[in-house]
């Protein structure tokens, strides 16, 4: 589903190479985790895949179901099925959460040549999905992420994901700032979305999220490359021994 080949990325404004040849394949129906020390390029990978500005791809490619992602605007990537759950969801004063969700859902439908969802159907759908994430009506009415707690912001991300039904879900440090209960709630939300047609790329610094969202494949990223790939046991190894051993191994 997602094919990344020899991806090299540098910062647009300075001469700093962040990704130095990433190769990665995520199959539909699978959960891939990327772990790695701070500064290894994990978040950059998520931003480059979703189309955030400030980065320059100097080499390599990334495709989703055969389509060249790197050539698309962020909104086109979203319509093609990419979803990034932000590490730091953005607050947008003045834009109501519901308006935002509905605009997004309809924009994607329009881009795919589908009919817009009716107000009544939308309301029903959003209420149903919000309920399972314990998002109350008040939170839906408030401006996007404004005044939300860390946990509320992350749940709001998962609600958007559930509403938009993407093909590729990228979760960037979704566990950061979450307590145990919130982590369980968010993980349940993610697990509910797991199905055969959908791929997941879960970026995390710690193993604990992977207790809740069980990965099929674990990659270790360091210094802009994937240095090791294995099964779930690789995450446990990191948890026990840290990254130092793995890093020493490749050097």
């Amino acid at each position: 589903m997602l094919e990344i080949k020899n991806l090299h990325v540098k910062l647009e404004e300075e001469d700093k190479q962040i990704l130095k040849g990433v190769d990665l394949t995520v199959e539909a129906g699978k959960v891939h985790a990327i772990m790695g020390p701070n500064g290894s390029g994990k978040s950059t990978l998520s931003y480059v895949l979703s189309g955030r500005g400030g980065y320059e791809v100097t080499e390599g490619e990334a495709t989703l179901l055969g389509e060249d992602l790197l050539d698309m605007d962020p909104e086109e990537r979203a319509a093609a099925g990419v979803f990034l759950a932000f590490q730091y969801p953005v607050e947008i004063p003045g834009v109501g959460n519901m308006t935002f969700l509905r605009t997004a859902v309809n924009a994607q439908r329009k881009a795919r040549g589908e009919e817009e969802i009716s107000a009544a159907d939308f309301l029903k759908l959003v209420r149903e999905k919000a309920k399972t994430l314990k998002i109350d009506a008040e939170m839906l009415k408030r401006p996007v992420n404004v005044g939300f707690s860390g946990g509320e912001k992350k749940r709001n991300e998962i609600l958007q994901m559930a509403m938009l039904e993407p093909k590729l879900c990228i979760l960037d440090e979704t566990d950061s700032g979450l307590d145990v209960d919130a982590m369980k709630l968010v993980s349940d939300g993610v697990n509910a979305l797991r199905d055969e047609g959908r791929g997941f790329l879960v970026i995390t610094h710690y193993q604990r999220l992977l207790d809740h969202i069980k990965p099929d494949v674990v990659h270790i990223m360091a210094d802009g490359r994937i240095i090791k790939t294995g099964g779930p046991e690789l995450a446990l190894e990191v948890e026990q021994n840290g990254y130092a051993d793995l890093l020493a191994e490749v050097q």
Partner: peptide, 21 residues
């Protein structure tokens, strides 16, 4: 970027921000 990453086209995202302002 947040709005666009959810599929809202650039111009529409800008309008939303103007109205919000």
């Amino acid at each position: 970027f947040y709005l666009r990453s959810r599929g809202v086209p650039m111009a529409e995202a800008q309008n939303l921000m103007v109205i919000a302002f």
